[in-house]
Design a protein around this nucleic acid. Structure first.
Length: 477
RNA sequence: CGGGGUGUAGCGCAGUUGGCAGCGCACCGCGUUUGGGACGCGGGGGUCGGCGGUUCAAGUCCGCCCACCCCGACCA
């Protein structure tokens, strides 16, 4: 809580981001470099994200399990690309119980290896397949530069790990989970995302293909908001995940992995937030409706509170908070809840008691324009409708912002211009050298080759050679 | 790991020529307030990042160390 003005997004976007998170009490810096404490309000948002994802995973046949935090160092070394990708950022335990360990233990940066090891024990027959397991947990990656939620040494996520009998099934699973993430992002978080395939240089260490959903933040930078990897037989061969098929022949499995992390909270903050603070999508908001009572004296207070309690009961289908703090003025509370991004505020004062009304204020429309007077009668119905309207409006607003910052540059010179404050969707020949040149010249990298392609062919925006696909170039978090 | 910066109350900062460690916000108490960030009075809170040096005297000068932040290379 603070009554100083928030730094605006235009003044300094990253300062705005840091201040919003701390003032809304989403997270705080931990006493360990690069680590964060997720505070109750931030964790409540994460729990709603978890629930939305977990129910989707279960609906498509996945089950949850828990694997160890520690992984023997030798496990990571079994897959060449994997260890090369992750070794620079590993936290390693060398002492346990005061004794030097025989073999160092890695604090998991991701769990393909230890889960692969277990799968090799569990999978014997084609009848055992597919294995569809998800894990909710935390991982550690020793990053150089950290940002709250976006990149911390330790973060929370879910990682799905599946094993299949055929490449086709594994590919289908990889794409199914990408679709699941897209559905979650768009329909729960109101974060429009572009699903696509990662270039070879951007793909996960050890994957055959990586897919991601890419979102545009309020400063037009791209954020990878979820990933789904087709691992082929790479990990199956490294960990001997084999089964006997119907012809009694030994076969390697095909595996996948996919994850969404607490980074998604950063995506929500930077997609919807404004200069008043957070704006949370109603479906995920820990508090959907805040009721602020207004009164001048004890007599008014008791009348108002009687109505407030009645309304709270009426609205019990929603996540409602009554702000009955007596030491603060209504004006302060308005600003406070706006900072925290509560989608809908209901003001109840003496005038409302008299007229049987409440004043409703939409968080997504600042000032007077977002205020409407609602009758107390059937309030649950009108509040439900208003929350739906807000949810839809947030998505539309975010799509409009994103689309107005996606460009189709005519040549390389204009590509260099447009990626300064937007994304470029351009033909690319697939050569890593062209990718590297763009990054060198502009700091923009390829974000993804969108699943949705215009069709036909074109000329690479960088080298002019024939290109079969379009790719997004953007600066990224 | 390279470049830049900052460490003084919970947060943001001031601290002159070396001379009693301060201000705003937050916090606690009492009272008045309450439809867009209320006000008055009273109060609590400090190993000035650490260690060493110079000096009668160091937050201030000197040296070393540590931590954190920002900009790069790496990344969900």
């Amino acid at each position: 809580m603070s009554n100083e003005k928030l730094t605006t997004r235009n003044e300094n976007y990253s300062e705005w981001y840091n201040q919003v998170i701390q003032r809304a009490e989403m997270a705080d810096y931990a006493p360990v470099r690069g680590c964060m404490v997720v505070r109750p309000y931030g964790w409540a948002l994460w729990e709603n994200i978890q629930q939305a994802l977990d129910s989707r995973f279960k609906a498509s046949g996945h089950v949850n399990a828990a694997f160890p935090l520690f992984i023997p160092m030798s496990f990571l070394e079994k897959e060449k690309e994997h260890v090369e990708g992750f070794s620079p950022e590993l936290a390693v335990v060398t002492i346990g119980g005061g004794e030097k360990l025989e073999e160092p233990l890695v604090v998991r940066p991701t769990s393909e290896t230890i889960i692969g090891y277990m799968y090799s024990k569990w999978i014997k027959s084609w009848r055992d397949l597919p294995v569809l397991i998800n894990q909710w947990g935390n991982v550690v990656r020793w990053e150089m530069r950290t940002r709250l939620f976006l990149r911390t040494l330790e973060f929370y996520w879910q990682e799905g790990h599946t094993a299949h009998a055929s490449l086709k099934e594994a590919e289908e699973e990889t794409r199914r989970m990408l679709d699941t993430y897209t559905d979650f992002a768009v329909n729960e978080a109101a974060v429009p995302v572009i699903p696509g395939r990662k270039s070879n240089t951007e793909k996960f260490a050890g994957a055959v293909h990586s897919y991601s959903i890419e979102a545009m933040m309020g400063d037009t930078k791209a954020l990878q908001a979820g990933t789904s990897h087709l691992l082929g037989q790479n990990f199956a061969k490294a960990f001997n995940i084999q089964y006997l098929d119907v012809n009694n022949e030994l076969q390697y499995c095909y595996t996948t992995s996919w994850g969404v992390s607490t980074r998604f909270i950063g995506a929500i903050i930077m997609t919807h937030g404004d200069d008043q603070g957070l704006i949370l999508p109603p479906r995920l908001a820990p508090i959907q409706v805040v009721i602020v009572p207004i009164y001048k004296n004890d007599e008014e207070r008791s009348k108002v509170m009687q109505v407030v309690e009645k309304l709270q009961q009426e609205l019990k289908a929603f996540r409602v908070k009554v702000d009955n703090r007596t030491e603060l003025t209504p004006g302060f509370k308005f600003n406070d809840w706006e900072m925290r991004g509560v989608p809908l505020r209901l003001e109840v004062g003496p005038k409302d008691v008299e007229k049987g009304s409440v004043m409703a204020a939409r968080r997504d429309i600042p000032g007077r324009d977002g205020k409407t007077i609602l009758p107390q009668e059937n309030l649950a119905v009108s509040v439900g409708a208003l929350l739906d309207t807000i949810q839809t409006a947030l998505l539309e607003h975010a799509i409009a912002f994103r689309d107005s910052h996606i460009h189709d540059p005519a040549d390389y010179e204009s590509l260099k211009q447009v990626v300064k404050d937007g994304w470029a969707l351009s033909w690319w020949c697939g050569d890593p050298a062209c990718e590297a040149k763009v990054k060198e010249d502009t700091k923009a990298s390829t974000r993804c080759i969108p699943l949705e392609q215009p069709g036909g062919t074109g000329k690479c925006i960088v080298c002019g050679k024939d290109a079969a696909e379009k790719v997004y170039f953007a600066k990224a978090y």
